[in-house]
């Protein structure tokens, strides 16, 4: 087949906002977010499902957006790092990452935050072991993980962290 396949129309909800876009049928959700919608908070790391930098929430489950087609998001709800902070302040996880110095270069950070939020929404007070297991799909080459795990524990200790409400 030499002709370019027809673009797919995708009606989705991104961070609570209804979005209608045209994507090439072979474009990933990550490419749709970054290149079509301009939401560049979600990062490309390995682009093959190993590093978790592109983690977003799809209908409430975290996925590697590089391993989802944009076309698959039709009719679904996508939540990215851009939807995490509130006008009144950062999400408790974001605040804890800053206070605990849980990032250096920052490329992996949006993925960690989106993944950690999903954990705290399900389990408001996870054990350290549980946090490490849950975040095993997110790689960080700077921090050595201890500070990230510490930041998630700190956020978990704050009331309401799992509800996405800002602290303070």
């Amino acid at each position: 087949m030499t002709t370019q396949p027809k673009k797919a129309r995708v009606s989705t909800t991104v961070n609570g906002q209804p979005v209608d876009v045209l994507v090439a049928p072979y474009q990933s959700l990550l490419e749709m977010l970054r290149e079509v919608l301009g939401l560049t908070g979600t990062k490309e790391g390995c682009n093959d499902g190993n590093c978790g930098a592109c983690t977003v929430s799809l209908d409430g489950r975290i996925v590697d957006s590089c391993l989802v087609l944009g076309a698959e998001a039709d009719g679904k709800r996508v939540d990215t790092i851009e939807g995490m902070a509130r006008p009144e302040g950062l999400h408790p996880l974001q605040q804890a990452f800053l206070e605990e110095a849980a990032l250096q270069c920052g490329i992996c950070t949006p993925g960690f935050l989106v993944a950690a939020r999903a954990l705290l929404e399900r389990e408001p007070h996870p054990s350290e072991e549980r946090i490490r297991l849950w975040l095993a799909g997110n790689l960080c080459r700077c921090t050595g993980y201890d500070k990230i795990v510490g930041a998630v524990r700190k956020a978990a200790a704050l009331d309401g962290a799992g509800n996405g409400r800002a602290a303070g």
């Binding site: 499902g49 978790g52 983690t55 799809l58 489950r61 975290i62 996925v63 590697d64 391993l67 989802v68 993944a115 999903a118 849950w134 975040l135 095993a136 799909g137 997110n138």
Partner: peptide, 9 residues
């Protein structure tokens, strides 16, 4: 099989 993100899919 994979991590949580992979197991979602």
């Amino acid at each position: 099989i994979g991590g949580i993100q992979i197991q979602s899919r």
